[in-house]
């Protein structure tokens, strides 16, 4: 049971990490236009949050 949870969390975060790159370099500006001129360190800093919240962010993009 615990192993299952750990695997699910791991796979979820792995998908998020892959998706984080298009998000921080392009997709985020569709949700929040202010990220257009954001600095590179800021984009890097956004990677963990994006990897965690990616389903929500995807919904936000495709709902528009």
């Amino acid at each position: 049971m615990i192993a299952f949870v750990v695997y699910v969390v791991g796979i979820y975060l792995a998908i998020g990490l892959v998706l984080a790159f298009p998000f921080v370099f392009s997709w985020h500006k569709r949700i929040n236009p202010m990220t257009q001129n954001a600095t590179l360190p800021f984009r890097v800093l956004c990677i963990p949050g994006t990897a965690i919240l990616w389903p929500y962010l995807l919904i936000r993009i495709f709902h528009k």
Partner: peptide
């Protein structure tokens, strides 16, 4: 496992500790 779950929550909080996430 309790510690692991707590760490996941803290990770989520730390990762969203930026005004960008507040706005998003």
């Amino acid at each position: 496992f309790f510690g692991f779950l707590a760490l996941l929550i803290f990770a989520m909080m730390a990762a969203t500790s930026h005004d960008f996430w507040l706005a998003t």
